[in-house]
Design a protein around this nucleic acid. Structure first.
Lengths: 240, 240
DNA sequence: CAGTGGTCTAGACCACAAT
DNA sequence: TTGTGGTCTAGACCACTGT
């Protein structure tokens, strides 16, 4: 069931994006008026507005009201949003092609065992994939997964979307991830696949992704072409 | 006043970090039990737990309970957390030294006017600062601010913390920011200040930061040494 | 003063998990 | 069936903003 606060959230988001394009600034109706309009309690309206605050779409001020944040901020090509999607789902309208370079089992060492929450010497998928978007070299992904958590991986799945497989075939729920983002010099391997010169760098994202039962299912290093990728984030003061 | 849910949040955070060190896994008391313990309603407990979920400290499962996420994930030196602090406040125990390279007014062009929400040709602070942490070259910060929003900047303020000045002297409330993170080759200027060779890259963070009234007050480009900085983020499926 | 958002209560019903 | 978290209600009091 679609929850009530998500319905309100979506409706308000539509409305904001429409008004912001037309007039620039936009003040939302007060919470009590939204209650009347959507025939619900104030807590429900507040929850919907909280989502909009999290996304950086509105801000709220005690005694004044809720307002749309001036736009014209983000919007760049090849932006990784703050969600946990695979590459295939981040660029649904583009053509993502995947070359599987390595697909094998290795023994978990101390580090991998710690990150993936398995025992040392347990089997681990060691996956190296090279991916293009619309034919343009984009990313070299080095992924470690435990077959205990994500069983039945095949070459074919790797060629498409692992995330899709995890959610649609295994019916596991991907809940979130920790990311560390760095710049680094490109290795010989990076240069070969991403078609970089020796002086051109890469953007590295180290990620641990976990399921809704808290189990980490992926530990990965993604090396992006420096000119083809931006990591985007909206951050705010903690509510409270 | 410290809110009740923040008190609960802090207490639970303490407890989790303690137990996680001792025993690894940790299941929190149920929401109703937490209600009894802290003598409050369930909504208040839930709000406290929401904060912990946002930070990636716990996860929750319908029908099961709330659990601490296995640790051993983040922890690196020189991590920029997902908050809006200046450099001085990100490394409070370290020695941050700042060299002001440029401090002048310029005319707002189309781009700056759009980002800072002022008119074209309005005056804009053009600030270039070079900062070391414990004597080690760290970041070259190119900052644009509107004197209409942040009046009275001086060389001395720049040498310390702009953010401190904004919050403590101007009594403005910093609410959040949009960040774009990229890797890039270092410019001659980057190489000079950050002591990089021609082949060494930088991590660039483009940022628009805004106040709690929605006004953008800063548009900046920070160039970090590639080996001295990691941008860290926790992301999760949208609640709902 | 009236209007706003922030916090908080004491319930309720639901879906889901474990037994 | 019991216990869990997710949603939702219909109020309440507060702090802050504007007039």
């Amino acid at each position: 069931m679609e929850t009530k606060y998500r319905v309100i959230y979506k409706e308000l988001k539509q409305r904001i994006l429409f008004h912001i394009k037309k007039e620039g600034r936009y003040q939302l109706p007060s919470e009590v008026n939204l209650c009347k309009e959507f025939d619900c309690s104030r807590m429900t309206v507040k929850k919907a507005l909280d989502l909009l605050v999290d996304e950086g779409i509105i801000y709220r001020q005690k005694g004044k009201g809720s307002f749309a944040l001036p736009e014209g901020k983000k919007e760049e090509r090849n932006v990784q949003e703050k969600r946990v999607l695979g590459l295939s789902r981040t660029f649904p309208s583009d053509q993502v092609t995947t070359e599987v370079i390595t697909f094998e089992y290795i023994f978990a060492d101390e580090l991998l065992a710690g990150k993936l929450d398995v025992r040392v010497n347990d089997p681990i998928y060691n996956i190296l994939r090279f991916r293009r978007i619309n034919g343009i070299p984009h990313v070299l992904e080095h992924t470690y997964m435990s077959p205990l958590v994500v069983p039945g991986l095949t070459q074919e799945i790797l060629q498409n979307s692992i995330y899709e497989y995890i959610e649609n075939s295994l019916h596991l729920e991907i809940a979130g991830s920790f990311k560390n983002v760095r710049a680094n010099m490109s290795s010989k391997q990076d240069q070969k696949y991403l078609e970089l010169t020796e002086t051109e760098p890469i953007l590295e994202i180290e990620q641990i992704a976990y399921l809704d039962n808290g189990t980490p299912f992926e530990y990965s290093f993604s090396h992006f072409r420096y000119d083809g990728f931006v990591f985007s984030a909206h951050t705010q003061k903690q509510r409270g």
